[in-house]
Each structure stands twice: as structure tokens, then as C-alpha cells.
Amino acid sequence: MTDQPTPGEKGDTEPELDPLDAAREALSRARLAARGKGLRPGQQPRVRRKYDIPRDDGGRDPVGLADQMERLLVERGWRVDVAAGSVLAKWPQIVGPDVASHTHATGFEDGVLTVRADSTAWRTQLSYMTSTILAQIEAEIGADIVTELRILGPSAPSWNRGLRKVHGGRGPRDTYG
């Protein structure tokens, strides 16, 4: 047979570790594992956030500001609101300087763009141009942003007070609108 004792016999040569040495050995193993992961003493563990996750292409290249803004607009559902704001801002470019000098876009809500004209003649002219204007908006801004165009005429003065107040009938107001 062999001269080596079997485990559990009195002849074991391995000395038992005291608890302090076991703790030191466990600590050194933990430090080596942390160093292998790139962590340093005193460093807070890093929490992974949505933007920390590597992209599909496997790269960690920086992303341009325009791409980040586009992603933010899509995630938050702000795309239509931003597009509506650009319709209001680009109104002179969309309709041209002649029409823009007599009209201005006043508001946007639920796909309806409200436009106010200087006179009833321009209101009528814009109503004839509605399909052309919607096509220009679609070309400039994008599809399905503006679904309807509400055209308002000039706001009439109030005849409720003053020298020109009429007590019976419509009076001078019948020429507006």
C-alpha cells in the first residue's frame, strides 16, 4: 500500500486555518476579483443606465447631438409638438412672402393649424389655397403633422360701447366677417 494517510486520519499534514487568516485570504481574493473588473478601492459601484447599455452595432462611439435629440423626441412623444412649432416659425417660408405679409399662423392644436388673415378677401383666397398649403407643409415639415387648416378672418372691432353703438339691429357690424 501507500504511505500517505487517508483524509480524516490523524496523520493529516494540512494545518487548520484560524478565522483571521481565512478572512484575510477571502479579502485578498475579493480585491483581485474587483481589480480584474476595473474597480478601485473606495470607488462606488457603477449603476448601469439605459444609455450605458452598448448599442446594437457593438460600438461605444459617441452619438451626435442631433441623433440624441431625435431619440429624445421620439421617446417622449414630442415630435408632433416640435413639428407644430416649426410650422408656426416657418410660416413665411411655407407660404411665401406675399401671402405671409397678409396672414400669420396663430396656433396649432390636435392637427389643426389656425391661420388669421388681414382681410376677408385674403381669408377667401387662403381657403382656395388650402390643399396647396397643406402639401407645402407636408413637404417642409413632414406628413401627418397638420391635418386641417382653419382660416379666420380679421377680428372686428367691438361696437358695444362708444359713439357708434347701435341700439337696434346689426348696424355697422354687418360689413365684417
Rank of each mutant, 00 (worst) to 15 (best):
M1I: 12
M1W: 05
Q4E: 15
P5G: 13
T6D: 14
T6P: 01
G8L: 05
G11A: 13
D12W: 13
D12S: 11
T13V: 13
E14D: 11
P15W: 12
P15M: 08
P15Y: 14
E16H: 09
E16C: 00
D18N: 13
P19I: 08
L20Y: 05
L20E: 10
E25Q: 15
A26D: 14
A26T: 12
S28F: 03
R29K: 06
A30C: 10
R31C: 10
A33T: 10
A34I: 07
R40V: 15
P41E: 10
P41M: 14
Q43D: 15
Q43P: 06
Q43F: 08
Q43H: 09
Q44W: 02
Q44K: 13
R46G: 11
R46T: 12
V47R: 11
R49V: 07
I53S: 04
R60S: 03
R60L: 06
P62K: 04
L65M: 05
A66L: 11
D67G: 04
Q68A: 07
L72F: 13
L73D: 00
E75M: 06
R76I: 05
R79I: 09
R79L: 08
D81N: 02
D81W: 10
S86G: 00
V87A: 05
L88G: 03
P92W: 09
Q93W: 01
I94H: 00
I94P: 03
V95F: 01
V95Q: 03
V95A: 01
G96I: 11
P97E: 15
P97Y: 08
P97T: 15
V99Q: 06
A100D: 10
A100P: 12
A100L: 06
A100Y: 02
S101V: 13
A105K: 05
F108R: 02
L113V: 07
R116T: 15
T120Q: 10
T120K: 07
A121H: 02
W122H: 05
Q125S: 15
L126P: 10
L126V: 06
S127T: 10
T130F: 03
T130A: 10
T130D: 07
L134M: 09
I137G: 09
I137C: 01
I137D: 04
E140H: 05
I141M: 02
G142T: 04
A143H: 11
I145E: 01
V146A: 06
T147C: 04
T147R: 11
R150K: 11
L152H: 04
G153A: 08
S155C: 05
P157R: 09
S158Q: 02
N160P: 00
R161L: 12
G162T: 04
K165E: 00
G169V: 03
R170P: 08
R170W: 07
G171C: 06
G171F: 00
P172T: 01
P172Y: 05
T175V: 13
T175N: 07
T175S: 09
